[in-house]
Nucleic acid binder design. Structure first.
Lengths: 115, 115
DNA sequence: CCTCCTTGCTACTAATTATGTAGCATCTTT
DNA sequence: AAAGATGCTACATAATTAGTAGCAAGGAGG
């Protein structure tokens, strides 16, 4: 197993699931890949394109990690979220709304620290 | 501003807020830092320790990015989440539950390769 | 069978980022 | 004044990511 609950990861030897998850999702393109898979399966090159022509090296590495983690799976249709992956994505969807509000507030106030 | 809505980021020239956010949170330690700040302010070295003795170089870089993004701020008490940062964290809290379920399901189903 | 695509992915090098350690400058406390 | 803390910079090394090329396998069409 590359990464999964119980694994020792950067910054935590405890293997606490949340730590493992934060490490996994903190790797480049991982979050974006989940995001791009939200609408349904994509094959390797489609996913690559969706992520802005990410290099196939990282894409493949990340895919392996996410598959090992049981978040992504392969099918005849291409790569897709597992049931669990879908649940994870659902937990991430609110980020979109937050980001929209963020955009509004920053372009309005544009500063670095809040009172 | 280093990174914020409207910025061009890796994999997206659109500057769509969600893309900028996913890029920002996808940098090493960013998610973890937010997580560790959930309970209240921490000073530089406390935060460093909380993140498992992350190197001060990255810590400082990430802090600057998160401050530029209006997610983290400094006060006499140390580094803390802004109002917005708090909202973002709130959106991320469900990940903890998800991760717990993840741990359970993987150790129960023992899919890929666990002893 | 033979080409010509498409697809998933490996190879390899260059560039960017992160790690790890040391230590300085600035307070605060004793 | 001396002895911590604290926030951070410097710098060398290691690890990760980017970028590009291209191969092996499979399918469609001829």
């Amino acid at each position: 197993m590359a990464v999964g609950p119980g694994t020792k990861v950067r910054g935590s030897t405890s293997g606490r699931p949340i730590m493992v998850l934060l490490d996994l999702l903190g790797r480049r393109w991982a979050l974006r890949m989940l995001w791009e898979l939200r609408a349904g399966p994509l094959n390797f090159r489609q996913l690559q394109t969706a992520c802005g022509d990410i290099s196939p090296t990282v894409l493949n590495t990340r895919l392996a990690e996410l598959r090992d983690a049981g978040i992504v799976a392969v099918s005849g249709e291409g790569y897709l979220l597992t049931q669990q992956g879908g649940d994870l994505l659902a937990a991430l969807l609110p980020l979109n709304d937050w980001a929209e509000g963020w955009a509004g507030s920053i372009s309005a106030a544009g500063t670095r620290d809040r009172p």
